[in-house]
């Protein structure tokens, strides 16, 4: 039997869970509630988990399901299967992104279409494999990858716009055009 130290569990996951909750709800108070509810669920149901290596996925899945359950207009968020295709995202110079404030990057993430925001957030957390993201969001792995591919492209567009609004020069790779 493996014992999971609850305080260690909170220490390790409360911040990434909050950031995931924030990207879903786009609201700090709701994100805090989602995290609290997730750990409450762990305290009451966590013992049912049979595989300790699944704790991380369990927590993120629980938060995501709770978020979905709280959505008022569920019919707006019916999951549909995406065709498996990847697209080349706009290439923004790293120095441009480096100069951006993290709040601007967060805002750009919040501007993403609902379908893309959750997988892209989990992708950028760099803690989850594509398979784990598929498990958390309960969608096929191919759909996860398509959505991440499109979401990344959308995010780059948003960041490009944000940087342009700040008067920075955006370099488009390939044609090496400059604008902004």
């Amino acid at each position: 039997m493996a014992e999971i130290d609850p305080e260690q569990l909170v220490e390790t996951y409360y911040a990434p869970l909050y950031r995931f909750g924030l990207s879903l709800s786009r609201n700090e108070a709701d994100a805090g509630d989602l995290v609290q509810q997730t750990f409450y669920a762990w305290a009451t149901k966590g013992h049912q988990l049979r595989n300790p290596s699944k704790v991380k996925t369990w927590l993120f899945t629980t938060l995501y399901r709770d978020f979905l359950a709280k959505r008022r207009h569920a019919d707006r968020f019916v999951e549909t299967e995406d065709a498996l295709d990847f697209i080349e995202p706009l290439h923004v110079s790293p120095s441009v992104i480096d100069a951006l404030d993290c709040a601007i990057v967060q805002k750009a993430l919040h501007a993403l279409d609902d379908r893309y925001r959750a997988p892209v957030t989990l992708f950028y957390m760099q803690q989850h494999s594509y398979r784990e993201i598929a498990e958390i969001l309960a969608i096929p792995i191919g759909t996860v990858m398509s959505r991440i591919s499109r979401g990344r492209a959308e995010l780059r567009d948003e960041l490009s716009d944000a940087a342009a609004a700040e008067g920075r020069k955006i370099v488009r790779m390939g044609g090496d055009q400059a604008h902004g």
């Binding site: 039997m1 493996a2 014992e3 999971i4 130290d5 609850p6 305080e7 569990l9 909170v10 220490e11 409360y14 909050y18 805090g32 995290v35 609290q36 750990f39 409450y40 762990w42 305290a43 966590g46 013992h47 988990l49 049979r50 595989n51 300790p52 704790v55």
Partner: peptide
């Protein structure tokens, strides 16, 4: 937030039972 979580939820160590 962390303090709220740890104080708001009575978290006992969870024993995970392998199958």
């Amino acid at each position: 937030l962390k303090a709220r979580i740890t104080s708001g939820v009575e978290m006992q160590p969870s024993v995970v039972r392998p199958n």
